[in-house]
């Protein structure tokens, strides 16, 4: 069984990857938001994957795809408060295409319910609708303390919390209850297929 695990450089995604790594071959995939975030976030993702490779011998090197051009398109043409939902939908859409190209059959994400305002059940459902493969969320029922405890145990907490610039294009008030029909309308304002193709060219 092979999957693609989305790694963000934060605390959660290395833990979600670790929890499934003994059950499947997981290819770690990182989307760089540059120039809307710093290269230091990418460095954190690379470092956390190296830590995981020390624990699991079936994890390949991190695959990195450009995502800044997608964010630029959404911020230029779409409803501002939907930027984060559109961003994550694009990630799972591209990740699904990439996964199929490498023979993977599912995606792994580090969401846990209600951890931040945007991780509502409503938003998770709207994001998942853009995926063309099943999305597995090993952390969904864990609280932050449990996730941090595991991150400390596996040695990724330190690299995941090192200084790194946050995403500069996050709106002041991101949508917490995105409506799928409204999101789909916003996506009509950009050429989704072209953006997916352009992103995959970054491999």
């Amino acid at each position: 069984m092979k999957g693609v695990t989305l790694v963000s450089g934060g605390i959660d995604s290395p833990v979600s990857t670790h929890l499934l790594a003994d059950k499947a071959e997981l290819v770690p995939l990182y989307f760089t938001n540059y120039p809307f975030s710093g290269e230091d976030t990418k460095d954190r993702a690379i470092a956390s994957v190296k830590k995981l490779q020390g624990l699991h011998d079936n994890i390949p090197d991190l695959v990195i795809l450009p995502h800044g051009q997608n964010l630029e398109a959404f911020a230029s043409k779409c409803e501002r408060r939907m930027t984060c939902v559109l961003c994550k939908r694009m990630m799972v859409r591209v990740a699904s295409a990439y996964a199929k190209s490498v023979g993977a059959s599912f995606l792994v994400m580090g969401d846990s319910l209600g951890q931040v305002a945007s991780q509502t059940l409503t938003n998770l459902a709207v994001v998942e609708q853009a995926a063309s493969l099943p999305v597995v969320r090993p952390l969904i029922g864990l609280d932050k303390e449990e996730i941090i405890r595991i991150a400390r145990e596996i040695g990724t907490f330190g690299v995941s919390t090192s200084s790194a610039m946050c995403c500069s294009i996050v709106p002041d008030k991101p949508s917490t209850a995105a409506v799928l029909e409204a999101v789909l309308e916003e996506e009509k304002k950009v050429d989704i297929a072209a953006l997916v193709a352009q992103t995959l060219k970054g491999l």
Binding site: P35, F36, G68, E72, A75, I169
Partner: peptide, 12 residues
């Protein structure tokens, strides 16, 4: 200019 939108312009 590395990115330009109505809400943010990124420069180096």
């Amino acid at each position: 200019i590395t990115a330009r939108t109505p809400v943010l312009m990124a420069m180096r």
